[in-house]
Simulated assay, not measured.
Amino acid sequence: MNAGQAPLSRKPHGSGKAAKQKAVFLIVAIAPSLLGYVLFTLYPNIMSVYYSLLEWDGLTDAKFVGLDNYAYLFKDHFVWRALYHNLIYIVVVPVLTVLISLLLAYLLNNKSYRENAFYKVVYFFTNVLSTVVVALLWSFIFDGTFGLLNGFLELFGLDMNDFYWLGDSRTAIWALVIPMVWGGVGLYVVIFINAISAIPKSLYEAAHLEGARPMTILFRITIPLIRNVIRVCVVFVVLGTLKGFEVIMILTNGGPEGSTDVAGLYMFNLAFGKEAHSYGYASAVGMLLFVILVGAKLIIDKAYPEKEVEF
């Protein structure tokens, strides 16, 4: 090598082998999740788009009808009735669920109750129960003859005359809100407790020294500092309420007279109900619901954008 000439750079021995090992490791680590996503999410969604263009009952040969299912979709008043019920639920259920969860989490995190650990277990217990168990539990509570709700009202002198809360179209849709909220509060209480516990105690101590009231601290300190967590929870509750129908199916199956039907349940009954199956049209309803879900997510992102919060 001549003087003043820079030495040639050489790759360290084994660097190529290490890169290959890293690539193999990443493939092995990602492949199961990617395969599961393709098989159970991406592929069914693609096939749903295809099925929505067919007239098919699942048994006979499918007939390609193009956009006819979508044309009929906009004339089907049952779909719009179901979506109207969805709208009621996504306005009422997320508001009640988030507000109740936030208030309970705030009390448990900032009040020195001796039973705090017990309360946390009790609130989360509803999430341990399956949806079927929750629905059956509330079916007994709403029962007209032996129901706990009517028995409780009778203690205050209100004789309901064996009134069945889920059998009347005036009360059924509102009665279903209760198990939906009750079944979801526990999870969000735990989430909000963890979020609130991350807020520095010095902020609360300074607020107490300034004479701030509990509600002032809640709305001026706690909520602004965990707004991103609240935003995520609102998204989860709204999307879960839009696509969920299990509790409604078990308790009322959309009745009485369709007064509690929702889009997800209507789609399910079209495809798997006791009457004639219509997988093609059910897939078209599913595509409409998918568009609404995406639209709801975009609206939430626009109306309640994520902001960086510093303690």
Rank of each mutant, 00 (worst) to 15 (best):
M1K: 14
M1L: 13
A6S: 13
A6H: 11
A19S: 12
K20E: 13
V28F: 10
L34E: 00
L35Y: 13
Y37R: 03
L39R: 01
L42F: 10
Y43H: 10
N45G: 13
I46V: 13
M47C: 11
Y50V: 15
Y51W: 13
Y51N: 12
S52G: 10
S52W: 14
L54M: 14
D57H: 13
K63C: 10
V65A: 08
L67A: 06
F74G: 07
F74Q: 08
D76K: 04
D76S: 02
V79K: 06
W80I: 11
R81M: 01
L87Y: 08
Y89W: 00
I90D: 04
V91N: 06
V95C: 09
I100N: 07
S101Q: 11
L104R: 02
A105H: 01
L108H: 09
N109S: 15
R114F: 09
E115W: 12
A117K: 12
Y119R: 13
Y119N: 12
Y119M: 15
V121N: 10
F124D: 06
N127Y: 15
T131A: 11
V133K: 10
V134W: 03
L136C: 05
S139K: 14
G144M: 08
N150V: 01
L155N: 01
F156Q: 06
L158A: 08
M160Y: 04
D162I: 03
W165Y: 01
D168W: 13
S169R: 04
R170L: 09
W174Y: 15
V181P: 01
L187Y: 15
Y188A: 03
I191V: 05
I193V: 09
I196G: 08
I196Y: 07
P200K: 06
K201D: 06
S202H: 09
Y204Q: 05
A206N: 03
A207H: 00
G211I: 01
I217F: 00
F219C: 09
F219N: 05
F219G: 03
L225W: 03
N228T: 04
V234L: 15
F236Q: 01
V238Y: 08
G240P: 12
G244E: 06
F245A: 13
F245G: 12
E257R: 14
S259Y: 04
M267R: 08
A271T: 04
A276H: 12
S278E: 05
A282Y: 00
L288W: 03
A296E: 05
L298S: 00
V309E: 05
V309M: 10
E310G: 03
